[in-house]
Nucleic acid binder design. Structure first.
Length: 263
DNA sequence: ATACCATGAACAG
DNA sequence: TGTTCCTGGTATC
């Protein structure tokens, strides 16, 4: 279940084994069959991540856009021969040495460079890109009457944050998700931005979500075996009080009403 | 066997 | 705001 860290890690891992290779492209499930036929035996030239989106570059203006959505996942097979794909495999890329299977994506489509540009234009700065510009996000947040909890999941404000990192970063910075964006002080926004970047970067490094306690945004987790501080919990790990689960936009966010001051 | 749920997001109205 | 889609794991009957 993917947030930005999963996507960027996939891009890195897939690039390492697929780029520069001729790949067999197939769609056992069938819904990508026509495009697979077109791309089969071509050389993959690049794999890119932007927020939660992936692009597989096949040259000649042919790109495969993948978005995992909620249910999508990739599996990698290094055993030879690769096992027969499950019937639900939308896309298999096989170099002969490694095969990757994609199942359950929200998007797996053949697109043009212009399509890619149009989609990227809709995305806010990608927190996992070194050149991500916080000013663009601040311009949106500081003018918005929407709650910060909603703004963090809006991929046009900033790209890469999902429901777990939203809850964790707000908790780590002690911000209540209901705070209107325009009420955030610049310093609060800066702490939130830095915390999100740090958490997501760690997610790429570890290939899993591991978050931080409030006030320790850059010091790592303080308890072994625990990956989150607020998401999905019943009791707050800081004050031991009850954690609230409340709707914020289309999804629920977890909040500690004692640690995160209500607006 | 069925229902519900999930780290997502587009779309209708 | 509500509905829909994707897949599969877990809970419930």
């Amino acid at each position: 279940m993917p947030e930005g860290h999963t996507i960027h890690r996939l891009a890195r891992d897939h690039a390492a084994v697929l780029v520069g290779r001729q790949v067999r492209v197939s769609s056992p499930q069938g819904r990508f069959a026509e495009a697979a036929l077109l791309l089969d035996r071509r050389r993959l030239t690049d794999v890119e991540a932007w927020g939660k989106h992936l692009y597989y570059h096949f040259g000649r203006g042919h790109l495969v856009h993948v978005h995992l959505g909620l249910a999508g996942r990739f599996d990698t097979w290094t055993a030879r021969p690769a096992p027969a794909p499950l019937a639900s495999v939308r896309l298999r890329l096989d170099t002969g040495a490694v095969a990757v299977d994609l199942r359950g994506p929200a998007a797996c489509e053949l697109v043009t460079p212009a399509d890619r540009e149009a989609l990227l234009a809709r995305l806010g700065p990608d927190l996992l890109r070194a050149d991500a510009d916080p000013e663009r996000a601040w311009a949106r947040v500081s003018r918005s009457r929407a709650p910060i909890g909603v703004l963090l999941l809006d991929q046009s404000v900033m790209a890469g944050v999902g429901n777990v990192y939203r809850a964790e970063a707000l908790f780590a910075t002690r911000l209540h998700p209901a705070r209107e964006g325009r009420t955030l002080a610049r310093a609060e926004f800066d702490r939130l931005w830095a915390t999100l970047r740090d958490m997501l970067e760690r997610g790429v490094r570890d290939n899993r979500i591991v978050t931080y306690a409030p006030g320790r945004a850059h010091r790592g987790p303080t308890r072994e075996g625990e990956r989150t501080w607020i998401y999905g919990r019943d009791a707050c790990r800081v004050c031991d009080g009850p954690v609230e689960r409340v709707a914020s936009g289309a999804r629920d966010v977890y909040v500690c009403p004692r640690c995160q001051a209500r607006p």
